[in-house]
Design a protein around this nucleic acid. Sequence first.
DNA 1: CGCTGTATATTTCCAGTGTCTATTTTACTC
DNA 2: GAGTAAAATAGACACTGGAAATATACAGCG
Lengths: 201, 201
Amino acid sequence: MKNQKKSYHYGDLKPALIKAGLDILEQDGLENLSLRAIAARVGVSHTAPKNHFDSFDGLLAAIATEGFRRHAAEMQRGVEGLPPGRDRMRAAAAGYVRFAQQNPALFRLMFSPKLRDQADPDLAAAGAQSYGVLRSVAAGLEWPRPAPGFGPEMENLRTEMMLWTIVHGYAWLLIEGRGPRKADGTPILDILDVMPDFDVP
Amino acid sequence: MKNQKKSYHYGDLKPALIKAGLDILEQDGLENLSLRAIAARVGVSHTAPKNHFDSFDGLLAAIATEGFRRHAAEMQRGVEGLPPGRDRMRAAAAGYVRFAQQNPALFRLMFSPKLRDQADPDLAAAGAQSYGVLRSVAAGLEWPRPAPGFGPEMENLRTEMMLWTIVHGYAWLLIEGRGPRKADGTPILDILDVMPDFDVP
DNA sequence: CGCTGTATATTTCCAGTGTCTATTTTACTC
DNA sequence: GAGTAAAATAGACACTGGAAATATACAGCG
């Protein structure tokens, strides 16, 4: 972690700040993720991050970037070994939701409006990587009743977007505590119930 | 609005604060909605709201409550006069998304984690009213390929939840600026493209 | 009318936030 | 070793929401 010899210069402060942010998100939630809290956890003054990130939002973007990487990895993990088709797509969907459920604060940060205007190429790439998993599992699948007048390209785009819409909507409502639940708090319907079948041509 | 005779006591401060909050959301966005900004807009000190709301979150809940009422009304408006069935459901879905698009900051507040723990009966009622519109338009409709082993009651719940998941997911991604867009910024696919057809038995 | 509560609003203060500037300390290069 | 750039600190600033004490208005009652 930190350099053995406690020196004035921390060493690898940048990744340490990101890791501290991820830890705080997991332990204390998004509302307690502050620049000063991150710096304090690392053991450094609250102005130190300025040397590695333009602003606090830049640090948040870096944390979210790691989030998107893990998000993609979680989906990929569930998909491993499955042949293209219905089951593979459903496994990716389950992975999408599972990540959100297990990392609600991080997931909220990843889709926070604060990051919308951040022009961070790493963040964009990680987001695209995550979306790419959905793209890949949706490719070639067809939603029941393709839209009339849509060519194959548009139909592909439509399928991706439908899939994303469903998993994201479900994940968001889930971590916000919405939707019908059993007495013990677990949701009555899981993502695979809510998601309709795609056709395998 | 404000009492003619400017007196020490404002008059109807409570609704005035809610209205000011809605105005700020529309003009300056959620990130600029602060207790002090609301109070300043009304022309009172920042501690005055304490007499009408337990905390700032309580005021936010009241603003969100009005949001849910308008949200329900917007869906109801699009549904007016349509007989139960596919078109009615699609009109409600369009209304759900239209509201989010036209009131992005308010919509974000309505589904903000800050309100999740607020035990405000008015807020809960307004939220239920909004969800009730979705329930009512989904009632009796069947998703393609009903889930095996689900009774009619569960199938109804499933249909509602699917509908909510899709419209909410689409609305959220839309106002976050995600999803494929044309050169001019408008989305390539609208909610009615992304939403599959339900069956009309 | 005058007194007294009560509700409402103000003032002042406090701890917390991110950011800015100036300063100090360290590490690396010549 | 000296000079310079990088990396950290310290302190002040303008914000945030909240708490406590104070001031004002008004309603009810004698």
